[in-house]
Design a protein around this nucleic acid. Structure first.
Lengths: 141, 141
DNA sequence: TGTTGATATATCGTGACACGATATAAATCA
DNA sequence: TGATTTATATCGTGTCACGATATATCAACA
């Protein structure tokens, strides 16, 4: 079993704080970009999770909950908001009527394409800095 | 000026979704760890930002706001909760009485040491996977 | 020096979102 | 078939950030 050191250096705290700061800047960029399109950040992440999903099973509330790491009943509420906003269609799965299969609307697809394009650019911009921070944290000082 | 491609491949969406999923898992780990200590995640991040700060200026509400990427008045509320919980002391800066200088209490320092130790372990565990995802996204396909 | 504008922080009302507790319907199993 | 599990939904609650606004202090300058 791997033991955590008892003492942490100032540099350790600084490195962790810098990592968080970098992650926050990305999240802040992302949230702002989505807000400019009138889309709350969680709804954006839900759309991306649906669009980027490559599983065997159909995309359902339960699968989405796993991807978003939130409870199924919270996902149900989130999907409800997405359906109201016209971004997702929800249909009872004939193979298992308890399940609701989810699909993006054309409008959501357009919106997500725009957002994903600028996100790709931003990620590529941020990646080198983030990789360096992570590499530094790998070292045991 | 750099143009975003008009079309995005399924693989692009998948890569972005996977990146988000990895980041969410880290945030979920972090939030859970803090919650187990009875500390809301934002308060944890505030403590880390204060502890990891290496600036010339003293740590104040305004500086903390910059680090957390939230508005100063939101930071004021957050610090208020931290003071109530006994994690931070707030003092009027003699050099500029508008400013409030912030310091961690011993209790916060202990708590943050425990949390940071397990975070270091978790970051080191997550880093290789994250670096790979980021490297993949660097490629223009 | 007194006035004016900028800066730093605080307060209050509002909205998004996740959760716990609970409910219902459908599937599965004994 | 009855009991249990699974999938989703609903309702009330708490956290947290924000916009609008307020107050105190500092800075610039006529």
């Amino acid at each position: 079993m791997k033991l955590a050191r008892e003492t942490l250096s100032d540099a350790d705290y600084e490195a962790l704080a810098n990592l968080r700061y970098t992650l926050r800047r990305f999240m802040d960029f992302s949230t702002s970009a989505a807000q400019e399109e009138g889309l709350p950040s969680q709804q954006h992440q839900a759309l991306l999770a649906i669009r980027g999903y490559r599983g065997e099973e159909p995309m359902t509330i339960g699968v989405l909950a796993e991807k978003l790491l939130i409870a199924p009943h919270s996902t149900s509420e989130l999907v409800h908001r997405l359906v109201l906003a016209g971004y997702v269609t929800r249909r009872s799965d004939p193979a298992d009527k308890r399940r609701q299969t989810l699909e993006l609307t054309d409008r959501a697809d357009d919106l997500l394409r725009r957002l994903s394009a600028i996100h790709l650019t931003e990620v590529r911009d941020m990646a080198p800095r983030l990789i360096e921070l992570l590499s530094d944290l790998q070292k045991d000082r």
